[in-house]
Design a protein around this nucleic acid. Structure first.
Lengths: 155, 155
DNA sequence: TATTGTTATACTCTATAACTATA
DNA sequence: TATAGTTATAGAGTATAACAATA
């Protein structure tokens, strides 16, 4: 029981360490054929996942970073023609960030690389195990993220 | 099938984003009652997990960072009395890094906080689901990390 | 007066290169 | 000559503070 808990945490820690190292990002961009830094990719993929324009503030909240960080990277991505900033029709202070066609394509390639890494790792798994992993990982994500968010609000 | 894969990756991405934000580390150290930066905690917890002295190079390899990074943080932790550097008896160039009693205690408190976060999130889960999560998370970690490592070597 | 986003600045984390001391 | 670790430096990633414009 407690043994399960420890091994879950340890396995998760190993995954995070591997995913977060610089080399991993380097390989991702190489495989995707793009030259983007990590925050750039995160913003593009977030917009692609969202499937619709998003404000700076919403992007920042979702990626859980501060807004000046998003501002800077969005500016760079706009320069490169991967996204556009459109005035929010409902609020003159805000912008809607929209992927360009090229931006969507680049984001899609980046997202695909990560998916393929998982696909490769799960290739030998039974369909049942893959389905269970999906169910349990989603549940863990929901429960853990909700708890973290809840405590933030209290504080 | 492919649906499972996408939801697994998306859930994982959310988890990593939450775990990696600055606030999360802030709350960890606050809960553990220590003032340490992120690499400090990683090094201490790694030594605690290892359960025995480790060389600088081994720590770096395990945390998947370059050795100068470890050197600097180890020096700071030594200053604070949380670990000691002992000449490797078998190799005059190397050091064995040993947790002091206080260092082990601090590491233990930090590790405990993370474990408690997971414990809280899994509190309502059935014993069966918790066991399954442990099994599948470990398997995923093994398979994914092995694949990443393998490709690094090939390259 | 509160909120959205920007500009300016500084701090944390990590990598690379050049070095030293031992093998 | 190769390896373990260190020192010096630079770059990426992110936060904080002060500000502008709009609500």
């Amino acid at each position: 029981m407690d043994e399960d808990l420890n091994s879950t945490v340890a396995a998760f820690r190993r995954l995070v360490t591997t995913i977060n190292r610089g080399k991993t990002h380097e390989r991702l961009t190489e495989a995707a054929g793009v030259r983007l830094d990590r925050p750039d990719v995160q913003i593009l993929v977030h917009l692609l996942d969202a499937g619709e324009p998003r404000r700076i503030g919403v992007i920042a909240e979702n990626l859980q970073v501060e807004s000046p960080h998003v501002t800077r990277h969005v500016a760079a991505l706009e320069q490169r023609g991967l996204l556009e900033r459109v005035r929010d029709p409902d609020d003159g202070r805000a912008w809607q960030i929209v992927l360009t066609e090229e931006g969507a394509e680049v984001a899609s390639r980046c997202r695909r690389v990560t998916t393929e890494w998982f696909e490769g790792a799960l290739a030998d798994w039974s369909a049942a195990d893959r389905a269970e992993l999906s169910r349990l990982m989603s549940k863990l994500s929901d429960d853990l993220c909700e708890r973290m968010r809840a405590r933030l609000v209290i504080k």
